[in-house]
């Protein structure tokens, strides 16, 4: 077991921002107030280097700190834990790939500076960016070892509809399958259920948003069918998701996805953002509520990463909200605490 990693994570957790600080920032009058609140934190170094005080510049700072924390953990880890964290970090590799594919669909130039630099990522972004079409780019992707498992039907649908959704679902499927496979090893015996709960919930949410596209917003059913992650989630098995695709009315989704009733209700009311905030708060509540029997547990590492991710999201949301003069009460409601 990676005791050193877990102990370091406990130390790094003390640098996460307390809730009170975030609540204070919600009522900041300007970005300068936010910057002054962050002046005694590890964000200060990058903020000082930044050329301007704007929401976009600060967003880059927050992202850099989050990535730095993630990469530090990966570098500290060893063996299967390291492999697990590398697979966990693949979410950024997927974001990079999707960014390039979207640019190809839109017929725009790829800006390499927008790609997130992740170590241990074997993808050749340059050749992907230089592919002349979506189809070529997907062929290049399928030729890589990591994503050789992308199904041809997803590629065909992506090309047919000129949409990245089927590919996004496939990339995520591959990532989650790898994560679940690793969780079956002995090293994760004590934390397997908790982590399956976390990733399973993410799959549930992804599929809910995908399915409602067809039922509520009348997206092409054929496209949506291939845009869902085709593995069982935590509370919603895959066959239930497929069944939901055929419901004639949005109200029937409430029966099928009872476990996520409040999320579905908001989506039906066309309030996706509220649904998104509710589910993020629910995920955080679930991962925090799991009692860890032992002091040293790999679960603490993932818990720390999720807290760091929420800190990044909260800071980004606060900063943009203050820039756009959104009232403090509304900002407070949107914080994932």
């Amino acid at each position: 077991m990676d005791t050193y990693l877990i102990v370091r994570v406990h130390g790094m957790s003390t640098k996460l921002l307390p809730e009170n600080t975030l609540l204070q920032m919600a009522y900041a009058k300007s970005l300068k107030d936010i910057v002054s609140l962050l002046s005694i934190t590890e964000y200060r170094e990058l903020i000082d280097k930044s050329r301007e005080i704007s929401a976009e510049a600060l967003h880059e700072v927050y992202r850099s700190i989050f990535l730095r924390r993630l990469i530090t953990l990966i570098n500290m880890a060893s063996g299967i834990h390291r492999d697990f964290l590398v697979e966990y970090a693949r979410i950024f590799e997927i974001e990079n790939i999707l960014y390039i594919l979207r640019k190809l669909v839109a017929g725009e130039e790829v800006d390499p500076s927008r790609l997130i630099a992740i170590p241990y990522s074997p993808i050749d972004y340059k050749s992907l960016s230089e592919a002349r079409s979506l189809e070529n780019a997907l062929k290049i992707l399928k030729a890589t070892q990591t994503y050789s498992d992308i199904r041809d039907v997803a590629i065909n649908k992506a090309v047919q509809y000129r949409s990245v959704f089927p590919v996004e679902a496939e990339l995520n499927r591959i990532r989650y399958e790898n994560l679940f496979k690793m969780l079956n090893s002995l090293a994760f015996l004590t934390v397997k259920n908790e982590l399956k709960m976390l990733f399973g919930t993410e799959i549930d949410i992804y599929n809910i948003f995908a399915i409602t596209a067809s039922v509520i917003y009348k997206f092409a059913q054929d496209l949506v069918q291939h845009s869902i992650i085709s593995i069982d989630g935590y509370l919603i098995p895959y066959n239930k998701v497929r069944k939901a695709l055929k419901v004639p009315r949005s109200s029937e989704l409430l029966n099928i996805f009872k476990a996520y009733e409040n999320v579905i209700e908001n989506i039906i009311k066309e309030q996706e953002v509220e649904a998104y905030i509710i589910i993020q708060k629910e995920i955080k509540r679930r991962i925090l509520s799991r009692k860890i029997q032992k002091f040293t547990s790999f679960y603490d590492v993932i818990l720390y990463l999720k807290k760091a991710e929420y800190e990044f999201r909260n800071l980004s949301m606060l900063t943009h909200a203050v820039q756009y003069n959104i009232p403090g009460e509304i900002i407070q409601q949107q914080l994932i605490l």
């Binding site: 960014y99 998104y276 959104i326």
Partner: peptide
């Protein structure tokens, strides 16, 4: 636009730009 500002704040510029890039 008020709602859009809230959404932009919650989701961040990356997700919004990702969505916008396909709306050509």
């Amino acid at each position: 636009f008020l709602r859009f500002r809230r959404t932009y704040a919650v989701l961040g510029p990356d997700k919004i730009e990702a969505g916008a890039s396909l709306m050509r």
